[in-house]
Amino acid sequence: MYAFDFEKPKTVAEAVEALSREDAMALGGGQTLIPSLKQHLAAPSALVSLTGIAEMRGVCTGTDGALCVGGATPHAVVATEAAAKYPALAALAGNIGDPAVRNRGTIGGSLANNDPAADYPAAVLGSGATIVTNTRSIAADDFFEGLFTTALEPGEIIVEVRFPIPQRAAYAKFQQPASRFALTGVFVAKTANGVRVAVTGASENGVFRWSEAEAALSADFSAEAIEGVSVPAEGMVGDLHGTPAYRANLVKVMTQRAVRAA
């Protein structure tokens, strides 16, 4: 790693100030950022750790009934504390990476990074969650802008994520054999306003909503309802772990499994 200053502010305001420095970068749990720093893929002047900001940690219920997850909340905490109110989200969080990774990795870090094979983007997009930053609220549909790209401005911090609670939901993941990231993961949520289906790991453009499946499932929330629906292989990722056609198949299979589990 190149040398940098390490800062650990106590408040969002201090963090915003620290991040205003040229080439400063925010540090969540570091589970993705630190390996990339080791590879000399980034040369920040300062790393601003967000995990010391008390107001950004923990899980609570908002006045509108939504589940609010602080941006610096580790996956392991979400797995435990969201279990009663939003079990599908808790189950997803409890199966990210491995136990040691879950104790450090944070929801804000995961979303800001927007790895195309990460789990949380599927939950956020599938739930129709709202990303609350230090300056604004961003709907999930407007947040993810492709591989490793989001609507966040430089220096903008994810303070909280608000998840409306669906009637039924589940996440089904098929692991990439090496990294254990999602080769394809599908989050299905049935809400009063219809069904949302968000797919991670599969597309060359990162997490996406599968609208054909949403329509079919909104009419009939059953695995059989999407028997005749499929995603085209075109635009799916092809790599040493699977062809685009294979991933297209997994999108459907995992969607059906998520529906059955919901």
Partner: peptide, 15 residues
């Protein structure tokens, strides 16, 4: 770290 397993190669000492 404080009773929780972490990967010490992926945590800064200062953190």
């Amino acid at each position: 770290v404080d009773g929780q397993p972490v990967k010490s190669c992926t945590v800064f000492a200062s953190d």
